[in-house]
Design a protein around this nucleic acid. Structure first.
Length: 643
RNA sequence: CGGGAUGUAGCGCAGUUUGGUUAGCGCGCAGCGUUCGGGACGCUGAGGCCCCGGGUUCAAAUCCCGGCAUCCCGACCA
């Protein structure tokens, strides 16, 4: 490097006087160039970080011009030029590793609550994830489109989701007072679009996707990118003549998702899930296993059963059926409206009490029954009553039913119209239940004898140690970050938006739909959660901003110019070989460079210093493992390019 | 929307209780010099709407009232 300095051969070791003179000459040139550059920099307001050698903004002689296309196509970047400021202190508002490190590494900056700017390094990661998603979606036969972010509210009114989403949707009004929503998702737009183009069974199936920003006005944005109000999401929508055809695409998407997450370096578990606002029946969530995740999921240690805790069921162990149970008898339990208090007063296990949860089922008083040591799964309750509207009793409901004292409810209440019981509450077992009056419970109550059970269904929230419904193995609960979700939607949207096709007999049917989402920006956060340590991030090779972090340590000795030359040459050659390189050419102390290299987390670090160069080697450190070894200076490119 | 807290330089914080010099410290940033293989050191310097608005007072970062923003816990949610 240096102005007009010819590139050296790799002949660094020799101490002949002529060479010394040359080095001296080069140093003089370097200093002169530096002074010139300093003057230039003073006169301009744009001052790049100090780096070795001249500060020209243009390519040096002998250095091939770097393409200036999109960021992801740039094979290399000098840190002296990179728009980046790493933080030595953790930001005060970041709770979790991914938020903390993404801010510290200058990948993102907060602009408003739950809204972030992506700076160059973060943008490169995001684009890399996006590229993986795009490749796999294309390979699976999906076609990319771009749908509007600003969507007419009218479209949402047609499916009723404008109210279903409620304040969760960002809304705006144009100058003509027409309502718009910032897209939280795009079922409506895509369905209307397909309905406008296709009307024959011959056209189907078709699978369309986009990678675009989505907006949800969360009650409480938190955890940086994990729960943000603006996020990048890949959403795909498929249209079919029937469910069988849908299932084939669903399976293809499911498999594409597994490849995508693997390529991103994420440990992901697919779990059966509960359909939310989107609708439909069969669906799976892809959970990145992480303690900071916001969703609990259940998985079997013995087979491949896995489900979101909302959807999970267990193989219930029914309570023992007792013979010759005495007649029901009330017992005073003053002040004991909670399971634990009742159990303590009566000297029985909480599991021998019956928890009776009152709910409204389309105007009827109904009860859900689980053993006292279990929680009730509200989603399971909805499934159990199949389609009927269900609302757990609120304080107002209890106020309207003074004969139904909260905490003292029992299933032998005369006005109960519907009793739904967990399988662990079988006919014939004996329970302690509420006496339907304050401060009293009833003992020796037996389902089937003392009250009627209308529906038996899994109601209990699954707990660690429960038996797997498939293999009876032990279930475990872990936390995860939802990074993907695939749904078999059915005809909810195609019916509402009249996306119909004509079959070969001339009959008309709504198209059968599937939809498939991936949280692209959320993946970035999930990866950092999984791939980081005390020193910083360790990006997986598939999505790292750069393949290699090249550190040059020229020192101040006679070898400095040679070291710089060698580093410049390597920077150039690696790029020529297709390896993307972040080149730390800043004039800062070695400790700063090493700390930043570990913090920023490129998969491989290459250090060129006087010590190694004297032996003809560069040093390699694998960020993830910390393993170090020496590479012959001429072998670096081939060693890295072959990876 | 309930409960709790915080807003002071790019980042992290002190100062506020008890009003009173020119609002401070560390990091970062700029200049000079010394250093140079794991976040070096000295000297010099730049950088502030003390969240906003109103009030009390001779005097407000500090006290009072009202906003706004941000964070945490809870409810909600992909």
């Amino acid at each position: 490097m240096g102005v007009g300095a010819p590139a050296h051969r790799n002949d660094h070791r020799h101490g002949d006087e002529q060479r010394d003179d040359e080095d001296e000459h080069r140093r003089t040139l370097l200093r002169a160039a530096e002074r010139r550059a300093r003057r230039v920099r003073r006169s301009s307001h744009r001052s790049p970080a100090r780096r070795y050698g001249p500060r020209s903004r243009t390519a040096r002689p002998g250095v091939p011009a770097v393409p200036t296309g999109c960021a992801a196509s740039l094979p290399g970047m000098r840190m002296s030029r990179l728009f980046l400021r790493t933080l030595r202190d953790d930001p005060a508002d970041a709770e979790i590793d991914s938020h903390r490190l993404l801010v510290r590494t200058g990948a993102i900056r907060r602009v408003a609550s739950g809204i972030y700017s992506w700076l160059p390094l973060g943008n490169r990661v995001l684009r890399n994830v996006e590229a993986i998603v795009r490749e796999e979606m294309d390979a699976a036969g999906a076609q990319e489109v771009i749908l509007p972010i600003a969507q007419p509210l009218e479209l949402w009114e047609r499916t009723g989701r404008d109210t279903a989403y409620g304040p969760q949707m960002f809304r705006l009004t144009d100058r003509k007072e027409t309502g718009f929503a910032l897209a939280p998702t795009a079922e409506e737009v895509i369905t209307a679009t397909v309905a406008g183009e296709y009307s024959s069974y011959r056209d189907l199936p078709v699978n369309l996707y986009q990678i675009n920003w989505k907006y949800r006005d969360e009650l409480r944005p938190r955890f940086g990118l994990l729960r943000s109000r603006e996020f990048l999401m890949k959403d795909a929508y498929s249209f079919h003549v029937d469910v069988e055809d849908l299932r084939a695409t669903y399976r293809e998407m499911y498999e594409a998702y597994e490849r995508i997450f693997a390529r991103c370096g994420l440990t992901v578990r697919a779990v059966e899930a509960q359909a939310g606002e989107i609708g439909g029946d069969v669906n799976h969530e892809f959970m990145a296993v992480a303690p900071v995740g916001e969703d609990d999921f259940v998985w079997c240690t013995g087979c491949d059963y896995a489900a979101n805790v909302e959807a999970a069921v267990r193989a219930a162990a029914p309570a023992a059926v007792a013979a010759d149970v005495p007649a029901p008898a009330d017992v005073d339990t003053p002040g004991a409206g909670a399971i634990a208090d009742v159990a303590a007063q009566l000297g029985v296990e909480p599991g021998s009490l019956l928890k009776s949860i009152a709910f409204d089922c389309e105007g009827d008083l109904a009860l859900a029954l689980v053993p006292g040591d279990r929680e009730i799964n509200e989603f399971a309750l909805r499934r159990a009553v199949a389609g009927r509207a269900v609302r757990l009793y609120s304080d107002e409901d209890f106020a309207a039913h003074p004969d139904l004292p909260k905490g003292f409810i029992g299933p032998h209440h005369p006005e109960v119209r519907l009793v739904v019981a967990d399988p662990s509450v079988p006919a014939g077992a004996e329970w302690v239940v509420g006496a339907n009056r304050v401060d009293a419970h009833t003992r020796h109550v037996v389902p089937g004898r003392d009250f009627r059970v209308d529906v038996v269904a899994d109601l209990a929230v699954v707990a660690t140690g429960d038996a797997c419904p498939r293999c009876r193995g032990a279930l475990r609960i872990d936390r995860g970050i939802e990074v993907g979700h695939v749904f078999q939607l059915g005809t909810k949207y195609s019916t509402a938006l009249e996306a119909v096709y004509t079959d070969d007999a001339g009959g008309q049917h709504p198209m059968v739909m599937g939809c498939y989402g991936i949280g692209v920006s959320r993946i970035v956060a999930a990866v950092v959660e999984e791939c980081s340590d005390e020193a910083g991030i360790a990006w997986p090779p598939g999505i790292a901003p750069y393949d290699v972090h090249l550190v040059v340590l020229p020192g101040r000795g006679d070898a400095a110019a040679g070291v710089l030359d060698a580093a410049e040459r390597l920077y150039r050659d690696l790029q020529a070989a297709g390896v993307s390189v972040l080149f730390d050419d800043r004039e800062v102390s070695p400790g700063v460079k090493f700390a930043d290299a570990d913090l920023l987390g490129m998969p491989v670090q290459i250090t060129i210093g006087a010590k190694g160069l004297a032996r003809g080697v560069a040093e390699r450190k694998v960020r993830r493992t910390g393993d170090r070894d020496d590479l012959p200076i001429d072998g670096v490119v081939s060693a890295l390019a072959l990876r």
